[in-house]
Nucleic acid binder design. Structure first.
Lengths: 236, 236
DNA sequence: CCCTGTTCCTGACAAATATCATATTCTCCC
DNA sequence: GGGAGAATATGATATTTGTCAGGAACAGGG
């Protein structure tokens, strides 16, 4: 299972200015810093499971995580990519229901756990934290609705290009300025796009043939951003 | 344009126990009751437009409204059906961006408008109201993510059956216990399902032939709920 | 190092769905 | 009531996408 380790301090967390907690009042931050438990999860490890009851909220200190639904026939649909500074598991907590998604580490990650009672308690007291929470929820909802529209209306080719851009937005590029700084299997890419693995593979090959990208194992280099954006056919 | 009329009182609103405002403190409710402006919108009228800036939040006193994105190629995707007691326009307000959806009345509706400053102000002060707001956002997000999974993984036939169930859940049935109490065009149904209008029409005909539903103009009667549920193939 | 299981890739084919064309029916307005 | 325009219905066809099959490349463990 996950390995606990010396808690990194919230006050020195490298994401303390970008995460939701940058809005929290100092005294509340102190409480969180004291109560939280941090653990290291290895690549592939599950942080929480769809169907389980939530006991708190997770704040990613470092690493990359995917959140996915397991569809009826067992196929996975990735609904969110989580990065350092992001929190996860709040939806289930707020609506007091079970997790609707499974969180799996895409690489070794260190993740802090904040107990339910404390988090909800602080949320009640700290208006600016709860406002920030609403902002996050609104923005996720907006993205989800856009994704619904695109799934319903855009062909796989456009959605794949869009997904590449989305991965870049989320996790950024490596030092070379081209390579996506996350390693995803073709199946994971397909599950992000919402298509069959073979279709994703085929289209990636096409993109490569067209000079838009370069493939080397799980490395994906975005060569022609202009053409990728054009292929994604975004208007909004 | 919309016709203003004598404001219905929040304190006697038939939805005061089910809407988000049932959680608000009394004094805040008073403020809202005083500041709000209510208007009647005729069927087909637009309440707010995608791309416009929000000046407040809308609370539906009576009627039925659709919220839709206009896709790149002009095809509409319906992302939410709104009923009496629901609020709308909060996403744009909270994230301080423009509307991402257009709200159109599906039938004559009376809708209250609550100015932005007041709403945000009260949200800051009233912890239980803002908690309720988070609950609503979480639940919408959950629904949106489920829809993403289904769009990506389920065939149109199943999604259509699911959509019929969804319409029933949202707007309920008429007195006969079978007829959906909303009149939607075939195109609107298709835009809810995320498919071509012709496909929706064809499948509705099939459902009818199979005895699951009965069609009479825009009236849809759900005859065999068991079979509809089975066709929707819901597991979650 | 080799073996084994997994992932990746490509081709052939099948199924699902969209598109186009054309009736038919409905609706609303004069 | 009659006519114009829209909505609905249905068939034929094209396109997109998924599925299946088989081989190549790769990764990890003994």
């Amino acid at each position: 299972m996950a390995t606990p380790f010396h808690n990194p301090s919230c006050h020195h967390c490298k994401d303390r200015f970008s995460s939701i907690f940058c809005k929290a009042e100092q005294c509340n931050l102190d409480q969180i810093a004291e109560a939280k438990v941090c653990s290291v999860y290895r690549k592939g490890q599950v942080i929480f499971h769809e169907g389980a009851y939530p006991f708190g909220v997770y704040c990613v200190n470092d690493g990359k995580i995917k959140l996915s639904h397991s569809g009826d026939d067992g196929r996975e649909q990735i609904i969110r990519l989580v990065k350092a500074g992001d929190i996860m598991g709040y939806k289930a907590l707020l609506s007091n229901e079970r997790y609707t998604a499974t969180a799996t580490a895409l690489e070794d990650s260190s993740i802090c756990f904040i107990p339910k009672d404390l988090f909800l308690n602080i949320l009640q007291k700290d208006a600016s934290l709860s406002f920030e929470m609403m902002r996050i929820l609104s923005s996720e909802l907006r993205k989800a609705e856009l994704k619904i529209t695109h799934l319903a209306q855009k062909p796989v080719r456009e959605r794949l290009a869009e997904t590449l851009l989305f991965i870049k937005e989320t996790y950024g590029l490596e030092e070379d300025g081209h390579t996506l700084s996350v390693r995803l299997s073709r199946e994971e890419i397909a599950n992000l796009v919402g298509t069959a693995t073979e279709s994703a593979i085929r289209l990636l090959s096409e993109f490569k043939k067209d000079g838009m990208i370069e493939l080397e194992g799980k490395k994906i280099r975005l060569l022609d951003m202009g053409e990728i954006i054009r292929t994604a056919n975004l208007q909004e």
